[in-house]
Write a protein that binds this DNA or RNA. Structure first.
Lengths: 345, 345
DNA sequence: TTTATTATGTTAGCATTTGAACATTTTGCC
DNA sequence: GGCAAAATGTTCAAATGCTAACATAATAAA
């Protein structure tokens, strides 16, 4: 790596001031054509590029945004990230990504690190622990010191920012309703995430559907598996001791794993047990049977969140801004892990 | 967002110079305890954080690295990225991610953008087009102007940098050998990527295994599907008109899709046709049958690449550095899409 | 001579660090 | 007690790379 070309250097070579070089490179009319030409020529040849760090210091804008997610090894977040990346790049922003691994501590230190002026704004999906402990001071601090935040998917009402969410209540309702219409009566819900707001919403939607269709609730088949418990054991026990004719998996892995366990125990899918999963993973096409799922349009969600954030950055708002919450509509993608809707509906 | 706290501000409040504040916050012995205390107290209360942009300008280090990948909607790259993110964060670096979508143009503009001093170094897996056109000027320029590059997975010998690769030749060899040992004789290779160096290496490894085991080569079942051709049609045609008893998929999707198509056409897996895939996607466990694959240890690859890059950044090398190429060992993960090894081996 | 016009330079500012310089106080010694 | 030397506390100035407002100089036209 050789010495980077700077205005100063060029100025020295042509025996002019730094300002002249700066203006010449901007093709300012103030500078004579001859001077401009030779300076531009030299700059091009030496591959001059204005130092963006210096520019950032000057403009107090870095054209960089941050994204904090609980996980990246998860199709939902990968797709969301992909949407964010696309929009950010289109609009000339760089994206700094941080994975919180569900840990509040990591979230705090990362946000503190990003609070020093490196990013113009932040996209965040809260870590499990953050939601469980309802700790949001770090977010408020960021907003105070660094710039706007847009929360997506795992959001909190306690923080006043823009939000992009999925209609979790409704889509859980729709999924449950769909299963009911295909003749299921003992519908289980399985999740590995506890204390996460969206999970509560989904379960509420599920309960509401049961209520509306006058199906009794069996709490033993609402299976939120806490950390430390073995997924397989829990599901096996449930299948052995409870009547279950459908499973709604609240995350990809819950759904596929449950299906495999059920198949191993001899249940046919979808006749003995139907399966619906949240999140549309590309791989659901390839399982046997392919898995019916709720498409949360995660790429679109990422795009939307990034768009909102960038517009907030570019046209900062006054103190009494009203923040918006955008809800992404979900769709049910019917595949072969659910039965056809019965005639009497 | 209120006004960010700066040294200047604090200095004004206590009627001291900026330097005093700076030193006080660094707990310098030059400053009296009383002054230090009140300044530190105030700084803490007002949540002062040194502006990293100003520091970057001063130190010519941003503690940020870039990662450019052809795709992010691909388990291999996601895992690699995850490894990179972990190491970078451990070492206090931020990661800026850019997806080239296989396009040279995107790669060039991104690298130019990152050449302005925003990042201290770059990790890159070349886009398909870059490899096809053998265009590397942008990379050389980056190295000249901005800092070290470490290439991973899709690398080029034309560029003198550190590299982290997979032993593509050997693992294709091993996969082919494994199939041969389980009794397969008509082994097809399927890929959707053309003009990518690693694909050539893999095919070479495959050919070498055939040669060593004296199995005749049938070029019609080496199926590199060019853009514009329909995957399904190509595979169907191959299965209908050629004798095939095994398929090696050079990327996840090639493998799963091929398996599904074969199953649809009535072939049993693994008895009629065996399947081996490159890259260990978590979902290969959940297909029926589960898919035997080559674990490329992508997370580890990402970690290794990040470690090399950061050490290059932190202890810059002289002009005549010898760069290293690290090869990640792969392992064959046997599942149910391949037969057991026959007795006579 | 005055006034534009054209080309270039000066300065301040963005936030920070750091070694040198300065001023003040304390200490030591005769 | 007086004075130099040492210690202490604080400020200055330069540096990072760049821009923008303002200033200056020289030339040409009125």
């Amino acid at each position: 790596m050789k010495q980077r070309t700077t205005l100063k250097q060029i100025a020295k070579i042509f025996n002019v001031s730094i300002a002249t070089v700066s203006k010449a490179l901007k093709d300012s009319h103030e500078i004579s054509i001859a001077t401009k030409l030779k300076i531009q020529e030299y700059a091009k040849q030496h591959n001059y590029r204005p130092n963006s760090i210096a520019l950032s210091l000057l403009n107090k804008k870095t054209k960089t945004i941050g994204v904090i997610m609980p996980s990246i090894l998860n199709p939902f977040f990968v797709k969301t990230f992909s949407g964010v990346e696309q929009i950010a790049n289109d609009k000339g922003y760089n994206v700094i990504t941080i994975v919180s691994h569900g840990k509040l501590e990591k979230e705090i230190t990362s946000i503190n690190m990003l609070e020093n002026g490196i990013i113009d704004g932040l996209l965040i999906s809260l870590s499990e622990e953050t939601e469980a402990k309802q700790h949001f001071k770090h977010l408020e601090e960021f907003i105070d010191n660094a710039g706007p935040i847009v929360m997506f998917d795992r959001v909190s009402d306690s923080i006043n920012t823009d939000k992009v969410i999925v209609d979790d209540f409704n889509c859980a309702y729709k999924a449950t309703e769909h299963l009911i219409k295909t003749g299921c009566k003992h519908i289980s819900v399985v999740s590995t995430l506890d204390n996460v707001g969206i999970i509560k919403l989904r379960i509420d939607g599920y309960l509401k559907a049961l209520e509306d269709y006058k199906i009794p609730v069996n709490k033993k088949i609402i299976n939120v598996i806490k950390p430390g418990y073995d997924f397989e054991t829990e599901i096996k026990t449930m299948l052995d001791y409870q009547k279950v004719d459908a499973i709604i998996g609240l995350e990809e892995f819950s759904a596929v794993e449950s299906m495999i366990i059920a198949q191993d125990r001899g249940y046919t899918i979808p006749n003995a047990i139907s399966i619906i999963s949240f999140t549309n993973s590309d791989f659901f096409k390839y399982t046997k049977p392919s898995i019916t799922c709720i498409n949360q349009h995660s790429v679109f969600m990422g795009k939307t969140a990034a768009e909102i954030l960038i517009s907030r950055i570019e046209q900062p708002t006054d103190t009494n801004t009203i923040f918006q919450t955008k809800t992404i509509k979900t769709t049910l993608v019917e595949r072969n892990s659910t039965k056809q809707i019965a005639n009497n509906y």
